[in-house]
Design a protein around this nucleic acid. Structure first.
Length: 587
DNA sequence: CTAGGGTTAG
């Protein structure tokens, strides 16, 4: 057999070996651990690696793979990885090729990381180290540090090794180890990188370790590196997210003392934090202050303010602010119009398709058709969503197909709208077809794609299928989150069952995560919908959580952002369980 | 010496 065909065989074996297993036949425990297992390569990565390897063979580097299959040598691995093109693909290949956590394997990875660093592939070196660290755990990570340190001479400087280790520990979420590396850096008289310090601050603030934050800050003043605008802004953002707006504001005011000048970002962070907390007036004061101090507003500043005004329902004021944009020589972008449209829709003030007055929707779209304003697919997204709202899902699909044929770049938003609409209408097959169609464009499903599909199936009482899809998605590494729950939880009439579900989880001895947040927002919305509800009156959430031993702080600190792609398998399982209860009679 | 801000589909 020629080398070429041998390698082709390798690629094919690679594909077959990792074809999805039938997960529903596995016991649950095993399933969960397989999702979290670190050697897991998802479908998308598998595809990319396969494509990368075939390319490599076509370019006549196949012999590398052949030699590599006999001899596991760091240099070879680095050469292959280097030929794979992108960092993501290379990293996926490393994880695929390397699934052993023996001491030898750790030494081997250290050599790989050194070579990568020496070849100026620092990001990849960092990926490799952080992945190995996560695999072997905090205790054994000390061995890795030792190996890296001992083997560094041929390849990289003291600073380079320690800097990489520090970043790797931060990525792996091991803050105390990162701090340990930092003190080692001080011992060998290396000055830590300013950006590494910034991400360290970010981490410490995220976990609320203020003691270390201030200690670190003092160290920086004494021994460098000098805090920069980045450092301050990261700190300001961290304090804002934790709800310490006062501290954040003092930090901004003290920047000058350290030869830093608050910039648009600093102000935007603070303005946004004020808006999120509902203090729009304070936010506007800060805008005034920044103008007085000679700092120009950016389009972000406007968007933050417009968004705040819109969510307060103050559309008149929002509109005025948008008009102001051109006056100061900036041009409105698509995002700001999205914000405005969102505001109008939420305020039921827009006659979009959804509310039956097509002309108004058209008027808004026409306004959007300002030249240069539509570099992306927003207009298509909006139109598709509009048709979906109006129940014209088939038309929406045709419209999208038409746009795609005309060479428009496909966007996940449009697909999601259609999938959601079909699911809502109970046309699960159609939803699934669109889903498959979407995959052809190599779009990665988002949490809402998954949520819509699951919701469609569950509502139709097709729970075994829903469960199967859920498992498959989790196995492929698709994001599953609380989406499927959200809409249903936030109805007053649903609050009782939401609460029951919540209690079920506790009785089952599980520790719920996202559910809290969902429940809270559900309550919030319920309160605004009906002022007094007997059910709500008799439960004090804070007391309840305290009784259950749950820290409320973990739910949603003021100013905390909603995480974009939260993976909460639990929420989806609960969703399924509740579905079982509701439709068990049908089955 | 790879670090910081906003919006949409459900």
């Amino acid at each position: 057999m020629s080398a070429k065909s041998r390698c082709m065989c390798m690629v094919i074996t690679f594909q077959l070996h990792h074809s999805p297993v039938h997960l529903n036949s596995l016991p649950k425990r095993r399933l969960h651990s397989s999702i979290n297992s670190f050697n897991f390569i998802n479908l998308n990565e598998r595809r990319r690696v396969t494509v990368g390897l075939s390319k490599l063979i076509k370019l006549r580097h196949g012999y590398l793979l052949e030699v590599f299959s006999y001899k596991f040598c760091p240099n070879l691995l680095v050469r292959i990885v280097n030929l794979l093109g992108t960092r993501e693909t290379a990293f996926a290949f490393f994880r695929f090729a390397f699934r052993d956590d023996s001491e030898d394997a750790i030494r081997y990875s250290c050599t790989v990381a050194h070579i990568l660093a020496a070849r100026n592939l620092r990001y990849l070196a960092q990926d490799v180290i952080s992945w190995v660290i996560s695999r072997i755990g905090e205790t054994r990570s000390e061995d890795l540090v030792k190996f890296m340190w001992e083997g560094r001479h041929k390849y990289e400087s003291d600073f380079s090794v320690l800097d990489k280790l520090m970043r790797a520990f931060l990525i792996a979420g091991m803050g105390s180890r990162a701090l340990g590396i930092l003190s080692r850096m001080r011992e060998v008289d290396a000055v830590p990188s300013s950006s590494a310090m910034t991400i360290l601050f970010e981490f410490l603030l995220r976990v609320g370790d203020y003691g270390s934050v201030w200690k670190l800050f003092r160290d920086m003043i004494r021994e460098g590196p000098c805090p920069s605008n980045y450092t301050f802004n990261a700190m300001i953002l961290g304090f804002c997210r934790n709800g310490h707006l006062g501290t954040a504001q003092s930090l901004l005011n003290v920047m000058g003392k350290y030869k830093c000048d608050p910039d648009v970002c600093s102000y935007n962070i603070l303005i946004n934090a004020n808006c999120i907390s509902g203090w729009t007036l304070n936010a506007l004061n800060w805008v005034q202050l920044m103008i007085e101090r000679g700092c120009k507003r950016s389009i972000f500043t406007f968007n933050i303010i417009v968004n705040a005004l819109c969510s307060e329902g103050n559309l008149v004021e929002a509109r005025k602010v948008v008009n102001e944009i051109q006056d100061i020589g900036l041009s409105p972008n698509v995002a700001i119009y999205n914000t405005l449209i969102n505001g109008y829709v939420k305020a039921r003030d827009v006659g979009h398709f959804k509310y039956g007055r097509k002309e108004d929707g058209d008027r808004l779209l026409r306004e959007l058709l300002v030249p240069d304003l539509l570099p992306d697919h927003s207009l298509c997204d909006i139109s598709v969503a509009g048709l979906c709202w109006g129940g014209l899902v088939d038309e929406a699909m045709k419209f999208l197909e038409n746009m795609l044929e005309r060479g428009m770049k496909p966007s996940i938003v449009a697909f999601n709208s259609i999938i959601a609409a079909y699911s809502r209408a109970g046309l699960v097959e159609d939803a699934y077809e669109v889903f498959k169609f979407m995959m052809k464009f190599s779009l990665t499903p988002s949490s809402s794609t998954c949520g819509s599909l699951l919701m469609g199936l569950s509502r139709n009482g097709r729970l075994p299928e829903a469960r199967e899809i859920l498992y498959k998605m989790m196995h492929k590494g698709f994001p599953i989150n609380r989406v499927a729950e959200e809409g249903r939880f936030s109805r007053v009439s649903r609050m009782k069952s939401a609460f029951d579900a919540f209690m079920d989880i506790h009785r089952a001895g599980l520790v719920p995560d996202i559910v809290y947040d969902t429940l809270i927002s559900g309550y919030g919305e319920a309160f605004s919908m009906v002022k007094v509800d007997r059910f709500m009156n008799c439960i004090n959430l804070a007391e309840l959580f305290a009784a259950l031993g749950t820290k409320c702080v973990e739910l949603k600190a003021p100013g905390e952002r909603r995480h974009k792609e939260q993976t909460g398998w639990l929420a989806s399982c609960i969703f399924l369980c509740r579905g079982v209860n509701e439709s068990s009679l049908k089955e």
